[in-house]
Design a protein around this nucleic acid. Sequence first.
DNA 1: AGCTCCATGTTAGTCACTAACATTTACTCC
DNA 2: GGAGTAAATGTTAGTGACTAACATGGAGCT
Lengths: 186, 186
Amino acid sequence: MGRWQQTHEALRRAALELFLEQGYDATPTAQIADLAGVTEMTLFRHFGTKEALLLEDPYDPLMAEAVRTRPPGESSMRALAEGIRQQWHQLDPESTAALCAVLRVVAETSALRGALERGSATTVTALADALVIRGAAADEARVAATAVIAGLSTALLEWAQATREPAGQVSLTDVVDRALSVLGGD
Amino acid sequence: MGRWQQTHEALRRAALELFLEQGYDATPTAQIADLAGVTEMTLFRHFGTKEALLLEDPYDPLMAEAVRTRPPGESSMRALAEGIRQQWHQLDPESTAALCAVLRVVAETSALRGALERGSATTVTALADALVIRGAAADEARVAATAVIAGLSTALLEWAQATREPAGQVSLTDVVDRALSVLGGD
DNA sequence: AGCTCCATGTTAGTCACTAACATTTACTCC
DNA sequence: GGAGTAAATGTTAGTGACTAACATGGAGCT
């Protein structure tokens, strides 16, 4: 692991720790850089944006693959929903835990509404490409992919909000399943 | 028209004019306030955000109404798509022209990707409420409404991008129709 | 050792946005 | 018509994210 990746990781860890501890808005970038043993300038060279510290696009080629191999009869929306559902069920616990930490921060920070969607640009593109291979028109594919990711993000955030009150405690998987069913047109 | 609304309008006009002329990023808020004959402070009291100057949420209760009265058999996604389509066809030319101007600015400003969706919060809520009246669960309704608005926004932006090259010149209505068909699950 | 990139540091700045307090404008009530 | 009052705006001074231009350090190669 080169020096660059080391710093990169240090910054992300520091950011997540401070965000969870004292909130996103209340954490200046200077403090993050400090905790990572680095200058603010370096922070911005690595991430470009405070948001990016929390939301690096974790692109997963498996989702696009799953969408691509859906039966040809399905509509674009349903192919997306079912393909994503398929891959979601195979998500390892480590990734899930990381996602939950991020969701916790996003859920309590109004400035980050819509941030999940924004951080999924390459995933959207990959999903849209998969739909095009299945025979969809390019512009229509992008519309569908954006819609599904936006809907899914909303569901994840709703879950994170609800999980803060001890009453709820629904399983994340169930929430995602229901959201994908809605998006698929059930 | 009270003084407040006058200033409000002056600011919005000034902003749109300057954005179209020299671009969003290249237009400081100070210049907008200046052109409107007002201080920067006043600008932020009226709009709170530079984005808001371009994207005040123009909430239209008719769309929600159209969605609410869709036949009960339809899925949430289809009800949204068809309800919105229905209202879209009755949009007056003036509103359409205003929308096009906004789209032109958003399309050429990467910092505004996703801004249309962000600016539709109350519309999303209204649409979700309409779905709930139709019998959908509250969380599912919000997922569907967010997804459709996001998809629609994507289509509008793609249209704005394409319209900049003289080759294309597709009709806006056609683009919206196709997008809504995809989102409805065709 | 010397050379060379790569990653980082330094400095100084721009710009969106905020807080606290002062001032004007417009409207009402006597 | 003048006093009072509240809304709308101005002033000042600041914070915090982000950038540009240039300077420094350190790991590897010859």
